[in-house]
Design a binder for these strands. Sequence first.
DNA 1: ACCTGAACACCGTTCAAGT
DNA 2: ACCTGAACACCGTTCAAGT
Lengths: 236, 236
Amino acid sequence: MTSGKPAPISRRERPAKPALTREGIVEAALEVMRAEGLGRVTMRRLAQQLDTGAASLYVYVRNTAELHALMLDELLAGLDLSPVTAEGNWRDRLVTVLWSYVRVLTEHPELAQSALVTRPSGPGYLNLVDGLLALLDAGVSADRASWAVDLLLHFATSTAAEQGTRQRAIDAGEEEDRLAETIASTSAARYPHIAALGLDLLSGPGPDRLTWGFNVLISGILQTPRPAPDTAPGSA
Amino acid sequence: MTSGKPAPISRRERPAKPALTREGIVEAALEVMRAEGLGRVTMRRLAQQLDTGAASLYVYVRNTAELHALMLDELLAGLDLSPVTAEGNWRDRLVTVLWSYVRVLTEHPELAQSALVTRPSGPGYLNLVDGLLALLDAGVSADRASWAVDLLLHFATSTAAEQGTRQRAIDAGEEEDRLAETIASTSAARYPHIAALGLDLLSGPGPDRLTWGFNVLISGILQTPRPAPDTAPGSA
DNA sequence: ACCTGAACACCGTTCAAGT
DNA sequence: ACCTGAACACCGTTCAAGT
């Protein structure tokens, strides 16, 4: 992706065997993921890709969870944060940045899922958070921005995790069908409100819905102050 | 670990060997989960618990994902939905029900994670959705309630998934420490807004924060109409 | 119809031993 | 210091064969 490495070890020929580095491992992992999905990014498969043994990877990466976190951060480092400093309505710019975050995660939905469990902490993530805070600065106080950024990213991440994995999962659509069937066959007596809504309930998280969600969150944030700390604020 | 196994095979005595059923399997799975965590609820471990072979389970359960969904629905069926029909402010009652949902999921956080991927569709879930719709009915139009219930459950589920798994994950706290360290050592130049907030950024999703989140969502929902369908509404 | 053993094709992680 | 093979302790799922 960056630049062509000029044949590092190569005793004579060989595709290179690029000498293990943390960065190289992460890059290879992203490659495998793009080609075969995160499910195939296992230590063993990855070692094979790098022409080494699985055990070697543990010199550079603590475990699979850390590997995933590194992969995600690499992706986040590629985000376009220019809207942060652009002209125009801060709300619109905020939504734009959030959308670009969701877009990245939706392309690699399994990573989104792992981000839900292991909170990222790399430079890519910190950059994003800092940008979002800058945008929120225009609209809310700092303490509220702190919770707000968490809420917004949380929503964005979990939406991506949900959507994406669902596309792939369980033979695409079968699940949807099952739910649709359930709703259709549901006695209006047992679940009256669901029956009344019918299929609208699963119109699914299209783009409209995500944008609506962002707007709900932002409006809500603007209207809801943080509660005053009740117990001593410094209590560990 | 649990108790001394009292002579297992015995053709005469025996605790019963309860004859496999879908319900029995789910129940046993919940037992194993409560005792050893969802990570240990594997087909093989479960089969062992039920004194049979792993292959036998596939007669009753399509795969591991379905098993997890069944387990979750069983848990949801136990929710207290009485606030739905109680007296009082609908917003408060809505938050109460959502809180009870989160409480269940937080006790079994790994299930929350799986719920994010495989949308539940059992009676327990439908019951909950119907109840939430009933509550929302007091405040918003039906079409908005449809999206709202999704958004609220989504937030609740992912919060539980995040919190819970994080407690266990990566040696409890190490990750937090790492992030805190990063923030502390962060040059205020590179991430000025993060530096300005300092540790408040990771004050963590305590109860206050979840309640704040629900209030943000509800306020936002009340203020944000669904967009008018732009393209032909019936387009597949 | 239900149940089973055995097999297939995998996993993450550790560790003693090599270079 | 880094790398490796081999081992440990597991997985989900399928399938032919039994009852």
